[in-house]
Design a protein around this nucleic acid. Sequence first.
DNA 1: ATGCTAAACAAACGTATGTTTTATTTGTTG
DNA 2: CAACAAATAAAACATACGTTTGTTTAGCAT
Lengths: 214, 214
Amino acid sequence: MSDIDQIHDDIRETQAPARQETVNNRKAKIVKKATRLFIKKGYAQTTMRDISKATGINLGNLYNYISSKEDILCLSFETYHDPAMEWLQREGILDIEDPKEQLQKALHQLLIMIHDVTSDVLMMYRETRVLPPKFLKIVLKKEGDLVAFFEKIIARGVEKRVFHVRDPFFAANMLVFQLSLYPLRSWNLKRYSREEFLSLSEETILKAVIPDYT
Amino acid sequence: MSDIDQIHDDIRETQAPARQETVNNRKAKIVKKATRLFIKKGYAQTTMRDISKATGINLGNLYNYISSKEDILCLSFETYHDPAMEWLQREGILDIEDPKEQLQKALHQLLIMIHDVTSDVLMMYRETRVLPPKFLKIVLKKEGDLVAFFEKIIARGVEKRVFHVRDPFFAANMLVFQLSLYPLRSWNLKRYSREEFLSLSEETILKAVIPDYT
DNA sequence: ATGCTAAACAAACGTATGTTTTATTTGTTG
DNA sequence: CAACAAATAAAACATACGTTTGTTTAGCAT
């Protein structure tokens, strides 16, 4: 953003605070609608004209709210990436003493959250390549943090001899990957209800970590 | 292909059989080079001019060997999809009596094969959406067949009380999905050598299926 | 009411794309 | 060598795209 633009924004903020709300609303609306299009048609196949039509906002006018098409994709990623980690921290998962309960609770919640945004996760897997390098780095960092989070839980469980895995880091990677099973394979898993799927997922994952898990 | 083109091809085949060889070679070369570009830049971001440059074949001339850009992508998918199933049948995996050995052997080979085409698998996950519907159906069918293959093995093992899983179909889906762990997560798994990775993968997967696996 | 400013809009710009065409060269065959 | 199809090269074509521009509209402060 140029200095001129920055000044522009400052003025907008101070002069018309009432409008700022709607500006952000519009921006959010654009991202939301565009995300649905990216999911349905793919990023490259979605045109700014599509987004204009879907939002009802004039093509040129879109650029008053977002700076580029790529920008929309980045905003879309931001929407979905943070809530998981936020939940884990808000819920105080790290403070749970029993490793088994700790893992189970974290796993359960993440499976639910991801299941609810199945198609969005699929889109993100597909379009990660399009992200600008700087933003991509941030996204991978966040994903790495999630793995590290589970690694810590697993390592502690191993120390306490509750879990049994040879390599906590590897186990954490596998676990986090499994979280995306439904988004990436839903075409072959439609026969399961949400609850069936969650239960089967949890059971299978925990069995790989906890000896004699039933 | 129009009738005119068909006649064209017939002439070529009868009149210059020596060249037919090179025609197929060229086609394969185009697919191979294009695949590398799709991997590096993505399908949409790869232009026919890129492919022309990479193959050294003139832009217009490309269309003597392939019918469209989309066609190249389909051919690319075909290259990678069949070998796995072929190997499983050639090696007579289905004839192995011991379920544990059977599963272990199939799993091991597939992990190796996939590990060797890591970036190709990643590309396919990303670009599946671009395939024409008819071709997409074929691809998903083949993928479903692989799952069914493992489902059969697992179900037999459960019957024989060698394996213990609640739902063989689900277990098979999870297993096949795990095969793609490295392609989809290699950015976070670089620390492992190929052998380390294979060993850890096999161990973790088998532990979810076989009680008391060590 | 008036002047100012951000929002909205239609049109246009420049470029890049997949594909086709046309003209020329090459290589094989009778 | 002559004839002719195949292969090549370059240019052209039509269109679709992301983004910008110039102008008009509408709301708010004075």
